[in-house]
């Protein structure tokens, strides 16, 4: 269990309490500036909250040594960088950094597993500069998977991905959750959250305003209140689309 206990961060988060469960895909949604990325960074142990605590398996996350925290929680930042033109396999191998001293066989097995999970086996030798946007997003996610973390935290992993690549990535993240990992995603695409998450946290001005199954948390009323948009859900069970009013009317 990864949980936030009355988490507060000046100007960004106020008293957030939420318990996330392994084996689930949790989406954190909210308008720009709601504190989604700050919450995710706190949950990853990268920002120390001003008040409250993040607990991992009942113990405060801040008490864990950085290496141990890194082995438990994989984190993909909102704007991932790759400074050098690494090959895909080398990039993915960076995910093994927290496992210093692990046997070589285990290292390679974890890298192969991550490459296979993101369908990158055939691209393993390609330099990242020659990847498409979708391939690059998968390679970066594979880097996180190579750590074999219990928790997978990703900040807007669908940004810049087209429809099919976004759907493919979500399907792969669902497989990771089925393996027992906790998957926590900051998502801007509410339909993606509605269709693919098991649970949605809606944040507004640093506080949780709705928390539950997608159908309960992302109601038209909540969307109207938080985003200020009169939107309508169309479709049904797993295939929802969000219709928003046209400004041309």
């Amino acid at each position: 269990m990864l949980s936030a206990d009355r988490l507060s961060l000046r100007h960004r988060l106020s008293g957030i309490t939420a318990a996330l469960r392994p084996g689930e895909v949790t989406a954190i949604c909210g308008p720009n500036g709601a504190g989604k990325s700050s919450l995710l960074a706190c949950l990853a142990g990268l920002i120390e909250p001003d008040a409250g605590a993040v607990m991992l398996g009942g113990a405060p996350l801040s008490a864990l040594p950085p290496g141990e925290r890194a082995r438990a929680i994989g984190y993909l930042p909102q704007t991932p960088e790759i400074a050098w033109d690494l090959g895909v396999e080398v990039l993915v191998s960076l995910g093994r950094i927290p496992w210093r001293g692990a046997p070589a066989g285990e290292e390679q097995a974890a890298i192969e597993e991550a490459l296979a999970a993101m369908d990158l086996a055939e691209l393993r030798h390609r330099p990242v500069s020659r990847l498409s946007g979708g391939e690059r997003a998968r390679a970066l996610m594979a880097r996180v998977l190579a750590t074999r973390p219990r928790w997978l935290l990703a900040d807007e992993p669908l940004a810049n991905l087209d429809l099919s690549h976004a759907a493919a990535l979500l399907a792969r993240l669902r497989e990771q959750a089925a393996l027992g990992r906790g998957v926590v995603l900051v998502l801007h695409d509410l339909a993606a959250a509605m269709n693919h998450a098991d649970r949605v946290l809606v944040l507004d001005r640093g506080a949780v305003v709705a928390d539950g199954a997608p159908g309960e948390a992302l109601t038209e009323a909540v969307i109207g209140e938080v985003w200020g948009v009169k939107a309508t859900w169309l479709g049904e069970g797993g295939g929802y689309a969000l219709a928003t009013p046209s400004s041309r009317a």
């Binding site: 990268l46 950085p66 890194a70 929680i73 984190y75 930042p77 960088e81 400074a83 960076l94």
Partner: peptide, 9 residues
């Protein structure tokens, strides 16, 4: 190589 935030993670 992955940036400062990812390095800390």
């Amino acid at each position: 190589t992955l940036g400062e935030t990812a390095a800390r993670s």
